[in-house]
Simulated scan of single mutants.
Amino acid sequence: MVGRFDLVGLTIFVSCFLKYGICEEVCYGDLGCFSNDPPHDNVRFLPESPEEIGTVFLLYTRLNPYEGHNINRKDPESIIGSHFDPSRRTVFVIHGWNPSDKVQWMVDMKDEFLQYDDMNVIFVNWKDGATGLYFQCVANTEVVGAEIHALLDTLTMYMGLDVKDVYLVGHSLGAQVAGYAGERNPAIGRITGLDPGALAFEDEDPAVRLESTDAQFVDVIHTAAGNSITNIGIGIKGVSGHVDFYPNGGSEQPGCPLPIAGDVCDHKRATEYFVESINQCPFTSYPCELGQWDGCDTCGDIGCSYMGFHAEESDARGVFYLETESQSPYCQG
């Protein structure tokens, strides 16, 4: 009996250490161990457990466009019995901090993807781990990235998935989740970061943020990268991919409220631009120097690119600028 109470006391003691970020490492089975030692000291918290984060993967295809199949790496039959087809492109769509019950942009994006082609579209729902104290959610992104990586291993083992056909699209903290997944397997074909979250990531070590080494092709859309009043943005300002797009200069998007009050609108606009890019318009973008937006309206020697889904169709690399309309349809060409 004494031993039992000693064990309970130890569990409470360890839990308190975890809760307040005092521990240096925690391990979660096949996902491995997570530390807040440098360079992972961008946040003092350690990630919560997979059970607390509660990540759910929902698969949609043209055979089930409205009701997602819940697929689970620990239950291979849930994958084998689904409509997953390794011959199709596999797209993971990842939300960010404090999502609503139904993230409409994810639904809109899934519908546009399935209109464009028959894909495996997988929603990464980590709502429980993405709600609440921001810095705890930042810590949780690493576990969600590890869960995506583990699911990819299962899909490879049981379904013959080739990771070069995998595409991760993440908004805000979801973009940083994608970066963690790619850090574990940089053979992933593509990652698109939709205004990646800045707080606790801006100017941090590439090991703890989305970066060009996280996939074979990484493109980033910056829409809330610092307003004219505070110069502080919800979205990351620095170059993060092989191609970085700064529509309207990367902040204060047309049609959004004035700075500060409009930052959330600016931040969300990245998802709207991307959804529109899939089937409606290529968003032709022009090579530019970061922050030097005047006169960036020709393709020059570098060549133009296309902001959004069709970015991979251009060989041009670097920083790109374009202007948009103030309301949908946003694309000018």
Rank of each mutant, 00 (worst) to 15 (best):
F113V: 08
N125Y: 06
P76R: 03
V26R: 02
E183D: 08
W97G: 01
N98E: 14
D301C: 03
Y167D: 07
I79T: 02
C331F: 02
A270D: 09
D297W: 04
S212A: 15
L31T: 04
E183K: 15
R269W: 07
H149L: 01
K110C: 03
G189I: 07
G235F: 03
P86R: 02
G32K: 01
V319Y: 03
E67H: 11
A187W: 06
Q292R: 15
F274H: 03
E77P: 00
G233P: 00
T131P: 02
P287S: 06
D75M: 06
G160M: 03
V143S: 03
D85Y: 10
E67N: 09
F245A: 01
C27T: 14
Y330P: 04
S285C: 09
P39I: 13
Y167L: 05
Q280H: 12
G54K: 06
S35H: 03
G303S: 12
A225S: 15
R73K: 13
V144N: 07
E112L: 01
L168E: 04
I232C: 02
E25P: 00
D266I: 05
L152M: 12
E183P: 00
I79P: 15
V14S: 09
Q292H: 11
I236K: 13
S305C: 11
N42C: 04
I71P: 00
H40L: 04
A316V: 07
C288E: 12
Y321V: 10
N140E: 08
Y286I: 05
V91K: 00
R73H: 09
E142K: 11
P254V: 13
I80L: 14
P50N: 08
A215H: 07
I191K: 00
